[in-house]
């Protein structure tokens, strides 16, 4: 208990406006007639790692997708409520979606490298933005690969096809690809679900170091990882936000029976 109050993390309710990266209020998402997210209101603290946990199909992916509007791609998708980033409701029709997505990067559950070289994969987003001199581009690619802890492994084969990388390397390449754009928020969908322990460790270290500059939202099914790594954790059940708190608190003293059952592995 004592330790909790000494923690450097402020309680979610006490966050100041400048400490909030994303603010969702009364967000509901429907696919056709089916309601996938039901009236979610939550804030994502700035420069922290926030974990989203819950059973498969409870709407975690849908929730992070609504932070960079990847949901839009689905034809029968509909949503109400608001998601505010930098004081702007990003679900507004006038928002430039392409620009939004450069600031809110997303890494998908399964790595999807482009059929290009490793270098081109990382440079892809940058090249879309503007003409960049080769030297600067080289530097940016190197920086992104270094911050994704991949540089040492690929520096000799930058122009080899990205398909030759292992699953863990590909996942880090996806992170590097997103980081190259220097996003303010990084959304990670089960980034370590398919990785071996060593690669998982790499990615966890990576997130710790990214935290200084980037707000990270991560989906995970690994309770230890969520407890160990994240500052805040949100538990979802069938489209509803059941409990959202400081990770230490959520994992040591869950308020809800459902949460307790889930984190102790009693169901799901």
């Amino acid at each position: 208990m004592v330790k909790l109050f000494k923690s450097s993390r402020p309680a979610l309710k006490k966050l100041g406006a400048e400490e909030i990266a994303v603010e969702m209020s009364e967000l509901s998402v429907y696919y056709g007639k089916k309601i996938v997210l039901d009236n979610i209101s939550m804030v994502i603290p700035k420069h922290r790692i926030t974990s989203l946990i819950g059973q498969s199909g409870c709407g975690k992916t849908t929730l992070i997708s609504s932070m960079n509007r990847m949901n839009d791609l689905n034809k029968n998708h509909r949503c109400t409520g608001s998601v505010i980033i930098d004081g702007q409701n990003i679900h507004n029709k006038k928002v430039n979606v392409a620009k939004l997505r450069t600031q809110v990067g997303m890494v998908f559950q399964t790595p999807n490298p482009f059929p290009m070289s490793i270098y081109d994969n990382v440079a892809f987003g940058l090249r879309l933005q503007k003409e960049i001199p080769r030297r600067q581009l080289d530097e940016a690619v190197e920086r992104a690969l270094k911050s994704a802890v991949l540089w040492d492994e690929v520096k000799d084969q930058l122009f080899a096809s990205a398909a030759i990388l292992s699953g863990g390397q590909q996942q880090r390449l996806m992170i590097a690809r997103a980081l190259a754009l220097k996003p303010k928020i990084l959304l990670l969908d089960e980034p370590t679900s398919a990785l071996d322990p060593l690669a998982t460790l790499h990615i966890e270290e990576l997130m710790q170091s990214l935290k200084k500059t980037t707000t990270i939202v991560m989906i995970t099914h690994n309770m230890q990882q969520a407890a160990r790594l994240s500052d805040y954790t949100a538990f979802f059940h069938q489209g509803e936000l059941v409990e959202y708190a400081d990770s230490d608190k959520l994992f040591t003293q869950p308020k809800h029976k459902q949460t307790e059952d889930y984190i102790t592995g009693r169901y799901g």
């Binding site: 960079n68 990847m70 791609l73 392409a98 620009k99 997505r101 450069t102 990067g105 997303m106 998908f108 399964t110 999807n112 490298p113 482009f114 059929p115 892809f124 987003g125 879309l128 933005q129 996806m174 690809r177 997103a178 754009l181």
Partner: peptide, 26 residues
Amino acid sequence: PQALRNGALALGATKYEAIRFNVLPM
């Protein structure tokens, strides 16, 4: 694959750019 298009879109590509740089080459 749809995942490839999504990958491009998530990096700030417009639909046209995703088609031009990812879908058409494939």
